[in-house]
Design a protein around this nucleic acid. Structure first.
Length: 918
RNA sequence: GCGGAUAUGGUGUAAUUGGUAGCCACGUUAGACUUAGGAUCUAAUGCCUUACGGCGUGGGGGUUCGAGUCCCUUUAUCCGCACCA
């Protein structure tokens, strides 16, 4: 009987559901293994064929681990809060909760058709109050903690206030927004509001006036990772810098741990590198430059203290606090004009014009502490207010930006490191001999740097300092569809809601636009306040809030007393394998690690890092097809002949094209304007052009997995997605070629069954050749799964079948059913049942290969003479090098090439090749 | 500008990690069967050449008996960061 995948797949999907095959519980008799996919945002467009790629890979791995005896946690859920649902709501008035619900239902039905082994009993949705209860809870915990650099972990705010009570800030080394100094008496003298303002400086979740990325089009602020090149990642709208009071998370407190933790992770080097760059640690010196004729001291940060003798001017950011004090009366007008100009420039313009040099002289001078020279102080927007101290010492000879600035304003350029040609460009390299630098003259740059660090500290000019590029995460969004903050305001002080009051549920509203006053939609809600009438926060949390700890919730999803129970956490610990896209490198993956480390400090989780191993699947691009219309006509010319006409390229729906041949009738039926289309064919066919583009509706290249499942079956889809190429590589989807995999499954099916669909296996003993093929395949597939090389394992199956021919021996075929089960679970279950097993193939034992069957007793050596391959010589294994040499040299073939001469040397690589050099 | 990755037939890719480049598929061609199909089976298929043979892993150079693989250099494409002091 034909391989009836529709019947088989619906049968087993129903049975899995009914028998709860994939339900998993804590089981101390088995080792655990946690396989996680990045949960999807359920968009209105549904899944296309690229989305399940990672899910299929992780499903194969989960099933494999289960066969190997692990208790596998493999959950799935939805990242359900977010902008698109809300924007859709603004346009249509449809409540985001409703559209989200619909989208989830659609996703679920699509996912179910592919035959995943998810434990749906553990599903989470970030928009579910029972879920965001714990997002809010974590926020409260962050609000109630600060980061103590001395203990290297988060500590209670009450410990901090107790300390202030006793000794003020004396001896305190804590992560903060701006350093503070006060005594115990000063603390005691503060009122509640003043004290809270102090504490906001230390809390891990805090409110501050900061320069934020404001996106007017979206009406919300965005985190740094949500902005790219001055445009919002979602929507691509311009983003401007604006000072606003916002909630932030003090991610920077964990910068060092986020960086050092990377070393212990099995992540790709490129991903780790992205995170390292994002954290951007740099070691340097923070030092003070005295301002001439003024009590002011200008604080700067530098990584090149060795170049101090080359400092010829200083630059401060336009937003720097000292701008007014440093501006002399006769420069006032020019400075104001410059500040105006820079304020008007958007972030985007600033980025676009990085080559343009601009700036203004303040009229003040600083004193170079080493050379004693007076150096002018400039204002320029090439110095960033948000990095370091917002002020720099400029060394034009050895920094390209300072060089450009000095050239533009005609400032001195003093070389202090030998090398380069300063008439053309600065010499930025960190190597060379120091010159014009007093006591460090003659040293190499690498020697000079530590010497200068010491000297700066000895003279009391400053100290060593580590700076990070990483910024605190802006945590409020002026949106509706997100987690409400569990805080209320009294006299403009934020107070946390008590934990018993959680979750603070998002109120239902009908109008999702900002208010006329520009406040977020929640400001429309009457009575959005505590029982006592104190107003709640009207912003909501950003998308990453809900996704930062979802992997923990899956461990214990129905617990209404805690995020995760100690027992569940201690059993499941952390994610052993995380599969998802690289696009979350600086967002979700950074925030999750931060969140997890925080919870670790508080003792709620037992592992420092949430995701042990991470695999990034590549993107699946679309493969678009084109037809060519002769301009001004309704005539279409086949691709190969289009050069002879003046044509217009038109995207055509890939679903009516097969192997680049257009289905003419389907094309005429596709759109009314093509109903009367005429064609210029080549060899009787219309050949379409093609291109690799993003998979999107507008390109008509979206392939829906439902359609593939309907036509070929889920097992074919699963195997074909893997066969397409290496998991981590981006590649285009091309439905051409799926036949090969489908054919393979049909052949596999037919080996087991007769025409009536009954089992037709023989109990005959397998030949050594068949056993060799079987065990070779077992070995290869197992190794490939462990290396995430799923494409080559699919090939291995095909080779296996080619080699087995029409073999129908049970001894050979039965292990193959288990072997293929992770890839094609439906057909495997059906065959397993036919083979007489009552338990699911999911609970079978992974077949181990027997190395004995793979042993060769002879090897065919390729023999080359002077590097040129000449003949092959078959020799028994296990003979010595000398014996091989003698056997080869006595071979008449060899003598023909050596012409009787003794070879200069003979190279024997056992098991590989023999080379004779004359 | 800095950092990372990739480059192999008409297409997707593979190569025991330095050992006969192109496995496995798609596509194409020819044939078989056939109540004609987008089914199945067989064979061929890197390029040039009637053949002998030659050339072939983006380009150039090197190490080596031997290089897709290692080194240097160069080009192209993709990704990340980007005035980070």
């Amino acid at each position: 009987m034909e391989y009836d995948f529709r019947k088989i797949e619906s049968k087993w999907q129903a049975r899995w559901k009914e028998r709860q095959t994939y339900r998993v519980e804590v089981n101390h008799n088995k080792p655990k293994f946690y396989v996680l996919d990045m949960f999807p945002y359920p968009s209105g467009a549904g899944l296309h064929v690229g989305h399940p790629l990672g899910y299929i890979a992780s499903d194969i791995y989960s099933r494999y681990k289960r066969l190997c005896g692990f208790n596998v946690l493999h959950p799935m859920g939805y990242d359900a809060f977010g902008l698109p649902a809300e924007q859709y709501a603004v346009q249509t008035g449809q409540h985001p909760a409703v559209t989200t619900e619909q989208n989830i239902a659609r996703y679920r039905s699509q996912l179910d058709k592919i035959g995943f082994s998810f434990d749906w009993n553990r599903e989470v949705r970030t928009c579910d109050p029972e879920y965001y209860h714990w997002t809010q809870w974590a926020f409260l915990k962050m609000f109630d903690h600060y980061y103590d650099n001395a203990t290297g972990r988060a500590e209670k705010i009450s410990d901090l206030t107790a300390r202030f009570e006793k000794q003020g800030t004396e001896g305190l080394d804590a992560a903060c927004t701006a350093p503070m100094r006060f005594t115990a008496d000063e603390w005691k003298a503060m009122n509640e509001k003043e004290r809270e303002e102090v504490l906001q400086n230390y809390r891990l979740a805090f409110r501050a006036d900061t320069l934020v990325n404001w996106c007017p089009e979206l009406g919300t602020v965005l985190a740094n990772d949500e902005v790219k090149e001055g445009l919002s990642v979602r929507g691509g709208y311009p983003v401007e810098q604006k000072k606003m009071k916002q909630w932030l998370l003090r991610v920077t407190a964990y910068a060092e741990r986020l960086l050092s933790g990377l070393d212990s992770l099995e992540w790709s080097d490129s991903l780790k590198e992205i995170q390292r760059n994002w954290i951007g640690r740099s070691v340097g010196a923070q030092m003070f430059f005295e301002v001439a004729d003024s009590p002011l001291k200008l604080e700067i940060f530098t990584t090149r203290p060795d170049t101090i003798f080359g400092v010829t001017f200083m630059v401060i950011a336009p937003e720097h606090d000292y701008v007014p004090q440093l501006t002399t009366p006769d420069n006032q007008a020019a400075v104001e004009a410059y500040l105006d100009e820079t304020k008007k420039r958007s972030e985007r313009e600033r980025i676009a014009e990085t080559k343009r040099v601009s700036g203004v002289f303040t009229g003040s001078y600083a004193v170079n502490p080493f050379s004693g020279k007076r150096i002018p102080i400039y204002i320029s927007d090439y110095v960033l207010a948000t990095y370091g101290t917002g002020a720099i010492m400029a060394v034009p000879a050895h920094d390209s930006r300072d060089y450009a600035f000095a050239r533009h304003f005609g400032l001195d350029i003093v070389p202090v490191v030998e090398g380069g040609d300063l008439s053309v460009e600065s010499y930025d390299a960190k190597s060379g001999k120091m010159i014009n630098s007093g006591f460090i003259d003659g040293m190499d740059v690498k020697e000079a740097i530590p010497v200068m660090f010491d000297e700066v500290e000895r003279r009391g000019l400053g100290r060593r300092q580590i700076n990070y590029r990483l910024r605190d995460a802006i945590f409020s969004r002026q949106r509706y569809w997100g987690e409400p903050f569990p805080v209320y305001y009294k006299d403009d002080i934020a107070y946390p809601l008590s934990e018993e009051k959680l979750p603070l549920c998002l109120p239902r509203i009908d109008d999702f636009r900002p208010t006329e006053a520009g406040d977020p939609p929640l400001a429309r809600v009457e009575g959005w306040a505590t029982a006592e009438g104190y107003p709640y926060e009207v912003s909501t949390m950003p998308g990453f809030a809900g996704s930062s700890a979802y992997y923990l919730r899956y461990m214990d999803p129905h617990n209404d007393r805690e995020l995760v129970s100690r027992q569940a956490d201690e059993y499941w610990r952390n994610v052993d394998l995380y599969v998802g896209g690289i696009e979350h490198a600086t967002g979700h993956l950074m925030y999750s690690r931060f969140w997890n480390k925080f919870l670790y400090d508080l003792g709620y989780v037992c592992e420092q890092e949430p995701f042990k191993k991470l695999v990034n699947q590549g993107m699946i691009q679309g493969r678009s097809n084109f037809v060519y219309r002769i301009k001004g006509t309704n005539k279409f010319v086949s691709c190969g002949l289009k050069g002879e006409y003046d044509t217009q390229e038109i995207h055509v729906d890939v679903n009516i094209v097969r192997n680049d041949i257009l289905d003419l009738d389907a094309f005429r039926a596709w759109r009314p304007e093509f109903a009367e289309a005429e064609f210029v064919l080549e060899e009787g066919r219309y050949v379409c052009g093609w291109a690799i583009e993003k998979m999107s509706k507008s390109m008509y290249n979206v392939v829906n997995p439902d359609r593939i499942v309907e036509e070929y079956g889920a097992d074919t889809l699963r195997m074909y997605e893997m066969f397409l190429g290496p998991l981590e590589q981006s590649k285009p989807w091309d439905t051409n070629g799926i036949d090969g995999v489908h054919k393979f499954l049909r052949r596999f099916w037919s080996l087991f069954t007769d025409r009536d669909g009954n089992l037709a296996l023989s109990d005959e003993k397998a030949t050594p050749a068949e056993l060799k093929t079987l065990h070779k395949t077992l070995k290869k597939v197992q190794e490939d799964i462990e290396n995430f090389s799923f494409n080559t394992s699919v090939s291995a199956f095909m080779i296996c079948l080619n080699e087995l021919g029409r073999c129908n021996k049970r001894e050979v075929l039965e292990p193959l059913v288990v072997l293929i089960a992770p890839f094609a679970p439906h057909i495997a279950e059906e065959l397993w049942e036919l083979l007489g097993h009552t338990a699911s193939v999911c609970d079978a034992e992974f077949p181990r290969y027997n190395p004995e069957y793979l042993v060769e007793n002879s090897f065919e050596y390729p023999v080359s003479v002077n590097g040129k391959l000449r003949f092959k010589k078959e020799l028994p294994l296990g003979i010595s090098r000398e014996e091989i040499e003698a056997a080869v040299l006595s071979d008449p073939n060899a003598q023909k090439y050596t012409e009787g001469k003794a070879p200069r040397k003979v190279i024997v690589v056992p098991g590989k090749i023999i080379n004779i050099v004359i």
